[in-house]
Amino acid sequence: MDRAEVTDLLRRTGEELGSAVDAAFDAVELVRDRAAQVLTTGRGAPSTSSFSALHPLFQQVLAPEPNPLEGIGVAVCTGVLADADRWMEWWRRGPSGRAAFAKYVLDPSALGFYDYQSRPWFRAPLEVGGQVVVGPYLDAGGCDVYTTTLVEPLLLAEGKEVVVGGDLDMAWLEATFLRAVGRRSPALALVASNDRVVVSNTALLTSGSRMPQQLKDDVQVEVAVPSAVPGLSSWRLVALEQR
């Protein structure tokens, strides 16, 4: 492949990935709209049980296979719910493919407390005030999987905010990438802004590792993933020189 062909391939791959992630965000939007209804109707502040109205939607979103998302849910800021300071109504697809409520340790005095309110995936959307892509990262203490989270904030009332998000299934992202590139050579990779490899078509650059300097020098073509969403817009596709 010559340089022009590689550039064209990366550009097409970037477009496919960008639109695939955008499509995954549609499910998050769906939950956000429904959560806005559920959490603002009724008298007084909502409670942890208010989320039960969202359960069928979570199941419906996680049911199709293959699925860009392996988890979806809502996480609250302190002060939103009447009966809890912290709450994550998060559903995950289990090994059997069935979606189920994910239980987190939310008691700050407990061993293994998952302090989600301090995690980047929770803080970033509140700071940005809109859609953000966070990751990839290992959600240690949370669901303990390697994921990328698509998040956006939802303002319920003055000072009362929640975060709605979906966890990308990294195997799905990898399959989408490989389908788009369709080859194992030259070495191509999707890289996040911190130089961390998201997915690639070569065992030289594995997901989770960071681009070593000597390989950075071999970058032949670099194309940004076309997206307006912070996080995703800083991902780039690179092609390494064939050696």
């Binding site: 995950r92 289990g94 090994p95 189920a100 409520f101 994910a102 239980k103």
Partner: peptide
């Protein structure tokens, strides 16, 4: 002993 899947799924 494998930790129970979240929410006991599966």
């Amino acid at each position: 002993s494998a930790p129970a899947a979240p929410g006991g799924a599966g």
